[in-house]
Write a protein that binds this DNA or RNA. Structure first.
Lengths: 209, 209, 209, 209
DNA sequence: TATGAATGAGCCTTCATTCAT
DNA sequence: CATGAATGAAGGCTCATTCAT
């Protein structure tokens, strides 16, 4: 991103990135096209190219904002009793998935093969936040006896994180939503968001205690 | 897909779909371009359009073959003792990911938002196979006492399936490979495929028994 | 140039190259734009890019045709008495400059610095034809005593070639036409093509005999 | 050029024109772009457009400076014995071509057809200087008997000027350098600048005495 | 007067699809 | 039925010029 962009009013910077994120999310990296992004962002083509060297640079800036959002998300969760905290995380993802839906979508996209190029750029930062959060949460929980002592922290953290991301995926991706619901349709015909959370919490409690 | 396609020698049908799959996988649905696919498949543009109404129809045919491959994959696994069977599944994914790498890549892609249109078409079939396989595997295991009786089968199946798909993802996606390895780098500096399998099996045993 | 182009009817190939040459000549390499060339050549954009990898490849093909034209030009001149032959060359350039005006213009352009990239590609071929023609013409003339024996052939050839190309330049370039005419305006108020030729012949006779 | 420009410190005026000349020379008139010129000239876009109505006006101002440079160049040569003087001119072009290389390049460019628009503006002034210089040089030489009396002055002047400009061209244009060297490669395998001058002088002496 | 951000038409190129042969 | 040339609408990006500050 060029210095010109950083000179803009922060709110405008965010508005532009959000608009771009929406288009990238809706159509994928290749499918997103600059004119559409420009229109959505109320920026002329020329201006956009003053802000970002090219489409890729714009995409990276969008991903950076995605990382910031996730970072902020976890920073805002005060860790406490492990299951309450995880439940909290899951509950908070819903509003997050409404406000920052595009970023969540991109978070899934980044896992796709065709965006492998961007993986070195953001994977670690995207994933690191949750990994560290859950690892420390588990360690603390074990100290307090909330989690069985014989469960290795990394395994517990990986379990929780996997459940959390797959839950998050389900909030924006038809595929993951179907996948989740079809698994549990034997228990409930139709799932609401909070029922999904209950199921996840039930599972985690079962496996970790 | 048009009837003309089905009239082709089955081996040629597969060759064409495989070539298309490779291009779709490598460059994504939008990025894949028909002339390149035609060249890779040794088919003239005209012929391809005789076989498939358009790019989308071709993609669907490719996805169908993907579903067949997964179906065959699970059909070839004879269920036995649950953990041995899961280990078997994980071990067999590696050769699968070499032979049918493009289909595995597409399997991830289908989860992305921008391919939501295709989700209704294949999600259920893609996911149903594994889900049913693991559900029945768990039920049988519980009957034989290999899995704790108080663990609900759907939860066990979801756990296993989640671990399996995330493992499969890691075989083709930089992002998921990193994600997995970074979680467990506290235990092993560098992970080989079989170490990843060991870790997964260790976790599943821990949570399910 | 791609094989597709060579498959076209030769007359059409030439028509396309001539149309492109006209646009390149009129606006310069940078200023020439593909849509205009396509329109002039009655070729769709897509087709043009099937024929030539890109603008540069098209330009090279145009230059190649320019070389062919010059080659044919000299091949068609039967060398005889030296001054009669040179006069013949000068006289024939006028119809050439009408039929193949664009190529003559490009011949000048290629000397410009901004087309240095193309210089290695065509300079030698462009210039070699005339150089060899005049060198052999001079050698033969010296043998026949038409040119003073003490005049080195290379110098004579360089002199003739320089006068010829500057004359050719003057047929298409305002600058060179002015330059020539202003030199000789002391002798004639207004110069016709044949007067220019007379002046050049007068000079060459003066210097070489 | 606007009056505002003339109000600038003369050194700054020259610096701006030199920077612009460098860009125009390097990339051609069409290829040169204003932002790059502005950066090279340490002038803001706005300022540049205060100084010059548009790109064309800037180019004309650059050409004007080119004319001044040529004017100064010839003014600095004190005419003496004709061949010594011509040799002097040729020798001085080399340092000139280093200091004012861009202007020399533009001097060639102006001959190209696509800059015909600018030809009326500068051709006469560009060429007039040399033409007059050599014409008078020849007249004086004839009076002193340095040049054969039966050689018409305009022809001699045209000969000299043509050799001089083609020599100058060769200093910046690949094409003209090759052209010259290939002519004389029969005499010398590799040509240095001073060998080129010797060859030219040898020819002129041969033809004019 | 100076700045440099903003504009948007236009450039080169690609590609899904059609259709004459 | 097969071929592959042709089409032309976009797509990513550049740049001469304007204008608010």
């Amino acid at each position: 991103m060029q210095p010109t962009f950083r000179k803009l009013d922060p709110a405008r910077q965010e508005a532009i990135l959000d608009a771009a994120a929406a288009v990238f999310a809706e159509r994928g990296y290749r499918g997103a096209n600059i004119p559409v992004i420009c229109e959505a962002a109320h920026v002329s083509t020329g201006a956009l190219y003053k802000y970002f060297r090219n489409k890729e640079a714009l995409f990276r800036a969008v991903l950076d904002r995605g990382v910031d959002i996730i970072q902020t998300f976890y920073d805002d969760i005060t860790p406490g009793e492990i299951f309450a905290t995880i439940a909290r995380v899951l509950e908070e993802i819903l509003p997050l998935s409404e406000t920052f839906r595009p970023y969540l979508i991109l978070y899934i996209d980044i896992g796709g093969y065709s965006l492998n190029t961007f993986a070195d750029y953001v994977s670690e930062r995207f994933e690191g936040v949750g990994r560290d959060f859950f690892f420390h949460l588990v360690e603390a929980a074990k100290a307090r006896g909330e989690v069985a002592a014989d469960i290795e922290s990394v395994h517990a953290a990986y379990l929780i994180d996997s459940y959390v991301i797959l839950y998050a995926y389900a909030l924006v991706s038809e595929h993951y939503r179907r996948r989740f619901d079809r698994f549990f349709e034997r228990l409930h015909a139709h799932l609401t968001a909070s029922q999904r959370i209950d199921l996840i919490m039930q599972a985690l409690r079962m496996f970790l205690t």
